[in-house]
């Protein structure tokens, strides 16, 4: 219980630090919201003193004439209260826009993760049957190559093939018959790291006494790997979960853009092109919070599942 309390306190601390960083990033942008609004008043040319007066009024209204720490606190309270501002483009509250698109992104991320787990397990089991054997070498080359293939290239080629072969349609709302292709591309992007860690863990498990004992009892190498070694080897992969999540977030931005999958990533990309700052800020806040929470969650889960994890992680590092 003590550990849990400390973990929660630690997480809140990290979130606060992250929020300061995000706030600093947002505030360090050249120009301020008033510039943007004055710019948007379009065509109407203001005299210099009028502009100065309006600017001062607006700055005071937005609280931008206050000291920075106070601005930060106000900003933090507003964000925490769910007031994330209004999108310049759609005129809708940004938080609503984000929550509308989040399910599509979660669906893509989850299915991409599923694809990656399946592919990684398959590749790692193949490779670890005979470490450094020919199959292992080929798998290693394949994963190295997969690291190098840019997602946009893979996505474009996959899209080309799928539209030709299956009449895959890129337009329209999020649906299952649109999901499989971006999920596949996203999964392939996440697979290499996962499969390499799993292979290393499987090879390490094979050297343990229980594995040798299983072989001595007459279990086939495949059975030994699947029934005995796979489960303990998944531990290190779980710890990698945080890293995998980070690459899912990164990968989903490009995948969503290639397949025009209507998630938060595509929304953010379009927002950057349109200089829709509230949406950019919201995306950064959302992604940061999710990454921090998932990382801490994975750490905590790994520790609860296997208290030795701490000691083991130290050894690995």
């Amino acid at each position: 219980m003590r550990a849990l309390q400390r973990a929660v306190a630690g997480t809140v601390g990290i979130l606060l630090v992250a929020s300061v960083v995000v706030f600093a990033l947002v505030r360090s942008a050249p120009g301020d919201p008033v510039d943007v609004q004055l710019g948007e008043s379009g065509g109407v040319s203001l005299s210099e003193e009028d502009e100065a007066r309006i600017r001062a009024e607006r700055l005071a209204e937005l609280g931008l004439d206050r000291p920075l720490p106070e601005q930060y606190l106000r900003w933090l309270l507003r964000m925490a209260g769910g007031d994330w501002g209004t999108s310049y483009r759609t005129g809708q509250p940004v938080l609503d826009e984000m929550l509308d698109r989040l399910p599509a992104s979660v669906a893509l991320g989850a299915s991409g993760f599923g694809v990656a787990v399946l592919l990684a397990c398959g590749l790692a089991l193949l490779a670890s049957r005979r470490p450094d054997g020919p199959v292992d070498q080929v798998v290693r080359l394949v994963t190295l190559a997969a690291v190098a293939v840019p997602s946009f290239l893979l996505g474009t080629i996959a899209l080309q093939i799928a539209t030709g072969a299956t009449g895959y349609r890129i337009a329209g709302p999020a649906s299952l018959d649109r999901l499989w292709l971006p999920a596949l591309v996203l999964g392939i992007a996440v697979t290499p790291t996962m499969s390499r860690v799993l292979r290393a863990a499987l090879v390490a498990e094979q050297g343990r006494l229980y594995a040798v004992a299983a072989l001595a009892r007459g279990a086939s190498p495949t059975r030994m790997l699947l029934r005995h070694a796979l489960r303990p080897a998944l531990g290190p992969v779980l710890i990698l979960g945080g890293l995998a999540f980070a690459s899912l977030v990164t990968g989903s931005i490009i995948t969503e853009a290639v397949f025009t999958w209507p998630g938060v990533g595509l929304f953010a990309v379009d927002a950057i092109a349109a200089q829709d700052y509230p949406v950019v800020q919201a995306y950064v806040v959302l992604a940061t919070a999710l990454v921090v929470l998932v990382n801490r969650g994975v750490d905590l889960a790994a520790r609860l599942v296997d208290p030795r994890q701490d000691a083991r992680a130290e050894v690995v590092a």
Partner: peptide, 21 residues
């Protein structure tokens, strides 16, 4: 460690989003 764990793309995205591409 905290910075390493954080996706660089998000930071770059924020930077580009606020400064123009």
């Amino acid at each position: 460690d905290g910075i390493v764990a954080f996706p660089a793309v998000i930071v770059i995205l924020a930077f580009v989003g606020l400064r123009g591409p």
